[in-house]
Amino acid sequence: MWMVFALEIFAFAMMFVGVAYLRRTQPAVFHAGQSVLDARMGLGLTLSLVTSGWLTAEGVHAFRASRFERSRRFYGGAALMGLVFVGLKIAEYSSKSRAGYGLGVNDFWDLYFLATGFHFIHVLVGLGLIAYVGARVGKTTFEDPETTVGGTALFWHMCDLAWFFLFPLFFARP
């Protein structure tokens, strides 16, 4: 699982460098695109992911202590906060699309939708895993509990880590 984590983070890191390069080479295009983004929306997305990550970590510890009901509640909370992230992101994509921003407009929007879209797909996969594991904690005997429960949490935390860099690269000014 750590190998998957390392490879995924490497893929994200390459994308981060691409965004950083665009910031330097096309500052006017980047600034124009950035001015349309809402930092409060970015903060909301960050807080929902961070809260979900904390609840997942609590869920893993409750599972290891065989407190399955408690673990299920934490996983449920984590999935709910993950859904908040998904809802906010869909609302943001919709509003940008209605305003005429999308793939093909310019390099900023191409990179914005590709990078955040790549992250969004990871969040959807992680959310599915969290919901799947959370619904089965204490009800099913996992063949490899540590990989199933710990590995799912690890994947979810990776989504957090990627967002911690994606967010400032798009939202912060030089």
Partner: peptide, 25 residues
């Protein structure tokens, strides 16, 4: 990071957040 809004401090704070998640969670 949002209140400050400047890239370098925001990246450093991102690194700190990554370490907190990595080491604790």
């Amino acid at each position: 990071a949002v209140a400050w809004g400047v890239l370098l401090p925001a990246l450093v704070l991102g690194g700190i957040k990554a370490c907190v998640v990595g080491f604790e969670f």
